[in-house]
Nucleic acid binder design. Sequence first.
DNA 1: GAGCAATTGTTTAATCGGAAACTATATATA
DNA 2: TATATATAGTTTCCGATTAAACAATTGCTC
Lengths: 138, 138
Amino acid sequence: MVERSLNEHLSHLLAQANRHLSRQLTAEGVSLDQWRLMKVLSESGGLPMGKLAEELALNLPTLTKLVDRMVQDALVYRVPDPADRRKVRMFLSDKGASMLASQNKRVEEHEAKVEDNYGNEDAQRLKSMLENFIKQIV
Amino acid sequence: MVERSLNEHLSHLLAQANRHLSRQLTAEGVSLDQWRLMKVLSESGGLPMGKLAEELALNLPTLTKLVDRMVQDALVYRVPDPADRRKVRMFLSDKGASMLASQNKRVEEHEAKVEDNYGNEDAQRLKSMLENFIKQIV
DNA sequence: GAGCAATTGTTTAATCGGAAACTATATATA
DNA sequence: TATATATAGTTTCCGATTAAACAATTGCTC
């Protein structure tokens, strides 16, 4: 049993890839997490905090405070669920939607460029492999 | 031009995969970054801070403070470079080496299990695709 | 339906992270 | 060799993250 070098560890490779890409995608004060949050809400508005935390792999206290800030900035808003008053349903505001739109543009452009350089077929393949991988480990 | 859903974005998939895996690998107070740092030093002892930051995709102030803590815990130590006194060379202590050994064991076991479930060939392929991807975007 | 457990989310206290400013040393230029 | 410029790390300040404790509401069981 030979010891692996760092570059042969999935955890390391994922950390590197994630950090580089997420740095490149942070712009105009919109972090990758903020973008992902807004994007989820645009696709499924009204998600409760718990589901949102799951979708984004954020833990709940972290999400609470991220949402606090985004509510301050009027990007999203909370609506208590009348059917289950423990729940808080999250929605994207108009301002949030327009922020999302411009950030979408930046992200799409950047990823398109990256995927072009990497090779579009390979990029496609990489994504579907990651998708399966995530299902595996969650 | 159809708008992509979140699951079709590499940035999202990488963030998810990274977070899940890095959470699962944090143990006994050793974070993924701490492990990666110790592992790099075990492979190339004497790296200056700047190189170390590059290798780990950490920015320098963050690394300084991570190292501060690890020096407190006597896992690593600093040696000023006599040839260039701006530089600080980092080394793994004996305690660090033994910490690394036990954490290596945990990581290897966990990743082996994950890779088994995912399929070893696919895992291998995923890693080499990620390696290429990282070269691409850095 | 009263009491107890489970679920949902927030708060608290401590630690960690990042951008910008700063210190110290080395190198280049005149 | 004096002055400017570049490089390597650290510090500061403020914002972000975490684990643990907490509060509110719902569901279960007797």
